[in-house]
Design a protein around this nucleic acid. Structure first.
Length: 269
DNA sequence: ATGACAACCTGTGGGC
DNA sequence: TGCCCACAGGTTGTCA
């Protein structure tokens, strides 16, 4: 479900409800996520005060004085704050019970998400991540250099977490449309100038989506339980067979690495 | 090193 | 109505 804007929206929604609170207990109903939920997580977390909540790529890091809980929402995960007494619904796998009668509840039908306990952000899953897309390190020049000699399609290149983090299928499609670049063009055959445009497009699309509270296609809700409204702004994703909003050409769908790609054959070259 | 692909899961929607 | 298949917002690991 979530790409970077949805994770960031979740982070912003949760922060006011959990930061400063202490953890009373942790209830793990289902350990079998992408990786098993660490057996010592409840012990590590119980009694700790939550000092802050950060995001790195699509990971959420909830800090305590002893270490941090690292949560990934995978494809279908969500985190919500609710009264701890709320009866658990199907796929409610983890509760972090707070000291005010509320709890932070993790739901994930597909169980592609994960929980880790990390110290000092030293974790293999964080180690090899590329730059944040909304940071100064994400530049056209860097993309251009890194792409030389690569035959991989530019869309796949853009979705490679070692190149830049947080750009998933929806926003890769949208950013390439905005930049006027065909998703199936070889990454190594795109000019420096066009990569500069692409960086701006990625940033504009992600920032715009964060501003709208993310994209709700089916059932995504942020930490405050509200859906996102970016779906109304989508130019190509999910619009194959419909007309390009810019030139009225019929949008074309292809599959790349078994993911849906939609683009305008006229506007994107 | 690179790039294509399978794998991990459940739920939903379309076609028949 | 029911059944089967394709597909869904992600990422890692394997293989050629």
């Amino acid at each position: 479900m979530p790409e970077l804007p949805e994770v960031e929206t979740t982070r912003r929604g949760l922060a006011p409800h959990i930061v400063g609170r202490s953890v009373q207990q942790v209830i793990v109903r289902e350990r079998r996520l992408r990786w098993p939920v660490p057996a010592n997580l409840p012990t590590r977390l119980a009694g700790q005060r939550l000092l802050g909540i950060r995001r790195r790529a699509k990971y959420l890091l909830i800090d305590t004085a002893r270490g941090s809980v690292m949560v990934h929402l995978g494809m279908s995960g969500s985190l919500r704050v609710m009264p701890a007494a709320t009866p658990p619904f199907v796929h409610d796998h983890v509760d972090i019970v707070l000291d005010n009668g509320q709890c932070l509840r993790y739901n994930d039908p597909r169980r592609f998400g994960s929980f880790h306990w990390v110290l000092g952000d030293n974790h293999d899953l964080l180690r090899h991540l590329g730059p944040e897309p909304l940071s100064d390190e994400f530049t056209g020049g860097a993309l251009y250099q890194r792409s030389r000699g690569r035959k991989i399609a530019v869309k796949s290149f853009l979705m490679d977490g070692k190149v830049v983090v947080g750009v998933g299928n929806i926003y890769a499609n949208e950013a390439l449309f905005m930049a006027g670049i065909r998703p199936d063009r070889a990454a190594g055959r795109i000019s420096a100038a066009r990569y500069t445009t692409l960086v701006s497009s990625v940033q504009a699309v992600l920032a715009g989506a964060i501003d709208k509270g993310g994209t709700t296609l089916r059932d995504y809700v942020g930490g405050d339980g509200k859906p996102g409204y970016f779906a109304q702004q989508l130019r190509v994703y999910g619009r194959d067979g419909l007309l390009c909003r810019q030139c009225t050409t019929v949008l074309k769908a292809i599959r790349q690495n078994n993911r849906a790609t939609v683009f305008c054959p006229t506007c994107q070259r």
